[in-house]
Design a binder for these strands. Structure first.
Lengths: 348, 348
DNA sequence: TTAATTAATTGGAACGTTCCATATAAGTCA
DNA sequence: TGACTTATATGGAACGTTCCAATTAATTAA
């Protein structure tokens, strides 16, 4: 029926007003008479008008759009998927829409998508950076006055806002808990040693051990891929050392699940024969058997907070870097054996 | 340093050519001399030029952009996250960028985000529709000539392209396999009965049973939420009926994991004491203990194919609906007991 | 009554790009 | 020589919106 798309001029013509008036209606300006407003909105509905945000933001000062970008390093990891969902929630209800891209830890891909997003005129960016992201990758954005918040992983040497979880406090609490259950040899399993997140978690583990008066021999920290397979591998090596650990705090939940798998493969039951605690509290942690004791970080909440921070900066116009650390909490379930100990105590 | 953003006019001025020439360079036109091209690209780099796609697609005929939209019903479900990743892959390498939104099964939210995406001028849409999505929700898009492909779930009565997996063949193969292992009472567990996907999977189950000469008493199909918790619930009910089933094909992997949990809670070992097969082949299926026998659907591949189909239609200009059904395959692991049977056979 | 105020509306210019038709320069052919 | 090509380069006009300054109409103040 229509030859081209319906524009404000078409609406104006049909409603018998000027395009300026239609524009005012579009923006909900109080300067327009209720009657005219009604007439115009009716015409818009009738003609099936769809707003052209591209044209709008072209005209608007400095081309600020209603688009924010979010790039994550691994969307197939449910932690980051949850993060994206959290961002989406607040971004959506603020009338923004999100460009989402997955880098799969590729720094080149990350560069590409960020460039592409800039071309599309994003007014802000949330990035969970790929490994080895440098400050230079984000520099042009901030130079152009585009607010950026990095999430989950920090980018060293960069002056942008960030939101990371309190990794140190998390593993500290985990070790403290295990020590209170009587464990004396606690391993740290999984993760790649070249990352800031790994270092922080390891630090918390070491601090808690020494605070509990326990030693932390280097052979008890065993790194591996931060995945389920990595966990299987790590527990295998952990159980082969002479003076076996009786408990482990794992780099993340994926590793912890792998550790459980590895234990079962050796006829050991996680929670009863060996205590394991994870990190992240992914959705499956609660329903797994045994339910995983872990450090809960609420990635969705983190995403929400990141988005709120970003929106604040977008609205403020000026973006002074702000770093927020997301507090975490130990949630005690079954895989650490605490529940079991408790029932034993009741029997005694 | 710069007061406003750098535009083609600035580049033209600095390079001593006209804006038209700059535009030609931008589009990689062969009409421009190599020398000028080099000079122009150099100036662009020097001045930190960033292309304004908004302005470009405003001018371009009918405002076709390099944006495609993807809306999924539940991004926290790794199946859909994988789907999105698959889409992202091909979309990215075709020079497009994706708007991604999560509806969380809310039809209102879906309407909002689709409207918002239209305003931003997407040139195509991939949607894994929320439950109860109607043809009317997609009608305006196709009327406007915007290619749409629905994935995973079909929307009845709509004339758009679709890509769904061969649900019937999947459960058929599962039942066939279980029957060949000697099972005579096979349950169908989990899922909501009001969906097309459920019906198709149930159909395949029934057909295979009758093909194997087995009966399919109604008490053996037990619906529940398509989640891990739903699985726990369903197996609980399944084991309480008089003539217990000895095997189950589950609505999806989440349900299957729940079923395994429920079995263990009753001191039954999945694979040994009860055969369970899932549907989807999520990443954890392979590494779980026991490894899950399931129907592999390769959501990432599905995403890739959906994106390819969409891009084809975008490039073709005209979009005749095409439906492709994604074939699935039974992958035999441990939870169905086949491996065990095999080793028993070897001993015999 | 006129002047001043308020309320509602409006035409044109601008945003950054692409497209079209035209222009220039150099080379080729009778 | 003049009339063609061919290879490059170019000024406007257009895309759909918003903003600004200006206009009209209705109301109030003096």
């Amino acid at each position: 029926m229509a030859k081209g798309r319906v524009t404000v001029v078409d609406i104006a013509k049909a409603a018998g007003v000027s395009k300026s008036t239609v524009s005012l209606v579009l923006q909900g300006s109080p300067l327009v008479n209720e009657g005219t407003r009604a007439k115009v909105t009716a015409t818009m509905r009738d003609l099936g008008y769809v707003y052209n945000r591209g044209a709008a933001s072209l005209r608007q000062a400095n081309g600020r759009s209603k688009i924010i970008g979010i790039v994550v390093n691994d969307l197939t990891n449910s932690f980051f998927a949850e993060l994206a969902v959290g961002v989406d929630m607040v971004v959506q209800s603020a009338g923004f829409v999100q460009f989402l891209s997955n880098t799969g830890e590729s720094i080149d891909r990350q560069r590409e998508v960020i460039a592409s997003m800039r071309e599309h005129g994003i007014s802000g960016l949330i990035v969970s950076p790929a490994r080895a992201t440098e400050a230079a990758d984000l520099k042009p954005l901030v130079a152009a006055g585009i607010p950026v918040v990095v999430a989950v992983r920090n980018v060293p040497g960069t002056k942008v806002s960030s939101i990371v979880s309190d990794n140190r406090a998390g593993t500290y609490a985990a070790v403290e808990h295990l020590a209170s259950l009587g464990h004396r040899r606690v391993a740290f399993l999984g993760g790649f040693p070249d990352t800031a997140v790994f270092d922080e978690r390891l630090d918390g583990y070491r601090e808690a051990l020494s605070a509990a008066g326990l030693e932390s021999p280097p052979e008890l920290v065993i790194s591996s891929a931060p995945s389920r397979a990595g966990g299987v591998d790590a527990i295998g090596r952990a159980l082969s050392i002479p003076d076996r650990p009786t408990a482990a705090v794992c780099f993340n939940d994926a590793v912890a699940f792998g550790v459980c798998d590895g234990l079962r493969a050796r006829r050991m039951e996680p929670g009863r024969d060996f205590a394991v605690v994870g990190f992240d509290d992914v959705i499956e942690a609660k329903t797994a058997v045994p339910a995983l004791t872990t450090i809960s970080v609420d990635p969705q909440g983190m995403g929400r907070r990141a988005a709120q921070l970003l929106l604040k900066q977008i609205n403020a116009g000026k973006a002074d870097a702000e770093s927020i650390v997301n507090s975490v909490r130990l949630v005690i379930r079954e895989s650490c054996g605490a529940k079991q100990k408790q029932s034993e105590r009741k029997l005694a």
